[in-house]
Design a protein around this nucleic acid. Structure first.
Lengths: 342, 342
DNA sequence: GGTGATGTGGGTAACGTTTTCCAAATGTTT
DNA sequence: AAACATTTGGAAAACGTTACCCACATCACC
């Protein structure tokens, strides 16, 4: 029953078995300079024979842990899953292992998770749509290589990958205008913090909506319901908009889940989509693509964003003092059955 | 610009600042025996003043890392997110931090992730619906405290938390029979491996379906389309079933996503739900609850499962030699608008 | 006033790597 | 042939904690 707990194979065992020093084994493990091909094969064979695996804890004490931490606000958001796919695909079978914290909402939870990742000596961090103060992000990025995804604004300490949310919103407005719509309303995520007001995607989408409406000479038709990026928020936002003296003929929801809520409210009001009213979302999540829903939506290519983030991060781990980069990707519009000519 | 890289605060700094030994600080950190209240407050103050945070890497080398690893096959499955919620809720603000690997499909990816977690000296593992060989799971559980969620069968090495899938399938069949249905078909996830054939939830659901049909004297009506637990699988499965000489009047899909695919195929065939045909799913995911879909589904209470798994795991970390436990939770049926009397 | 039991605190050796040297051997240039 | 550069390999000191012991003081009890 109680086997004598077979001690884990260590680098010392490997060294002894291969009749070399532990230093030599370490060099082979890290592909470091100073090991001849002969030595390399000899050590690798010993590693295979003993089934040796390096302890990340011990490694972390001196060097790298080969672990990359990903923080995201919400696991249920399918767009974030795409970003993750991109990250893991890019990292492929490099030595890095990706670990993520379960969704963390709010600045406090975010701080806890980031601390936890730093405590665990992660080699790099990918922060997806963080809400923390800019100062805090810069501090973090000063300690550990960091890439921020989905938040606008540049930093001297961390790289950024964002989608061009202003362009995305414009795509929707352009599309609806070309279908003959003029009363185009928007449901936004209510934002109070001043910095986030410029940096968060939701704010950028609202701004893109405004700008595009103005560009089409529709400034008098601008109509925004300010709720939140949730299904509930979409439901309430749409209710508000439908209660207007002059009902909008199209609603641009800032996110797909918001559009779903809006669809629900519209159906409850006895109206049809797109007959009475057109609806567009943002994110092109699996929900939007789902046949019975078939929502017109803006596609952000999360995979691409994730892949870029991972590339930048590995880059920075290798070269911590290089200049920071900001990558902005262009969204595309996927037209489906919830938008139609009026 | 280049600040002199402010060395991290260590336990030694804290000890010096509080004028005690490092041992004393360590004891306070771990709430270990042998520290007076006076010492405790003194050390805690020093910790706060210096902003000290223990290094998980160093801790892992001797003791615990206060990290729990969660492995799940697929991030996009909302049911798994519920389980995770349960885990984190149960762990609350204990000292443990949950980290999870991005979805890993297949035995090979699973092995990699589990190894990675062991390499990182995690204190405990929660494996959600693992497909690895039973032998492998036992090995793993012999090395590190482990709880397996969503896989039937018991083990002397690890605890288990499962939903009673047989009962769940029976709930659906009973419900449909009580509505007057007799030709009730099932879409299952095709399984080949012999062990998994008894242990995986999909196999249990298929078995529960069969058993319940027989219990109602409907053995001649048993009709199974064997595809996969995906939307595509549901689509194809439903197409098969609809092409039967005598069409089923109800379809029990083994998972909500499968039901979605089935709904799509049914709509394409020009039939209505539940007018022409009733459909039920399994998992009661957010998709099922979504108004326009409103799918009758079996609810597993993932949060409850996760909470139980976390409790068992922390238990076992504290007491590694206690007997293993198997917890089985009873599912409930949530009746919505996709099932009706025939 | 011994004799244990109990409470309180610390010294020191692990833990398993990587890093920083250094030495010897080998190759290359003058 | 001397001087120097490069390659190859290893010894030993970190890294920051915890586990294991031991010492001392205090207290209760015969």
């Amino acid at each position: 029953m109680d086997k004598p707990a077979p001690r884990r194979v260590t680098i010392v065992d490997v060294a002894r078995h291969a009749q070399v020093s532990t230093t030599a084994v370490s060099k082979v493990l890290r592909n470091a300079y100073g090991a001849s091909p002969a030595m390399r094969t000899k050590v690798q064979q010993a590693i295979a024979e003993l089934g040796y695996r390096p302890s990340a804890a011990a490694r972390g004490l001196r060097g790298q842990t080969y672990t990359i931490g990903v923080m995201l606000p919400e696991l249920r958001n399918l767009f974030f899953a795409d970003i993750l796919d991109g990250i893991t695909a890019q990292l492929g079978d490099s030595d890095y292992q990706v670990l993520l914290a379960p969704g963390c909402n709010g600045e406090k939870a975010e701080a806890r998770v980031i601390d936890a990742m730093i405590d665990r000596s992660m080699d790099g961090l990918v922060l997806i749509a963080p809400v923390s103060a800019k100062k805090r992000l810069n501090e973090v990025a000063g300690n550990v290589p960091t890439v921020v995804v989905g938040r606008h604004g540049s930093s001297p300490n961390h790289d950024s990958v964002t989608d061009d949310d202003i362009a995305g919103a414009a795509l929707v407005v352009d599309h609806l205008v070309s279908l003959g719509h003029r009363r185009i309303a928007h449901i936004e995520h209510h934002e109070t913090d001043r910095v986030r007001l410029t940096e968060m995607p939701n704010a950028q989408r609202a701004r893109g909506y405004r700008d595009a409406m103005i560009a089409h000479g529709l400034e008098d038709e601008i109509d925004i319901a300010s709720t939140s990026y949730t299904q509930q928020g979409g439901y309430l936002g749409a209710q508000q908009l439908l209660a207007r003296p002059v009902r909008p003929t199209a609603i641009f929801a800032g996110a797909d889940v918001v559009a779903l809520g809006a669809l629900e409210a519209i159906a409850e009001a006895g109206l049809t989509v797109p007959g009475d009213i057109s609806v567009a979302g943002y994110d092109n999540s699996a929900l939007a693509a789902f046949g019975p829903i078939s929502l017109t939506s803006v596609d952000q290519d999360g995979r691409q964003m994730g892949a870029n983030a991972a590339r930048l991060l590995v880059d920075r781990i290798g070269q911590r003092d290089r200049r920071t980069a900001q990558i902005t990707l262009s969204p595309t519009l996927v037209v489906r059955r919830t938008t139609a000519a009026r």
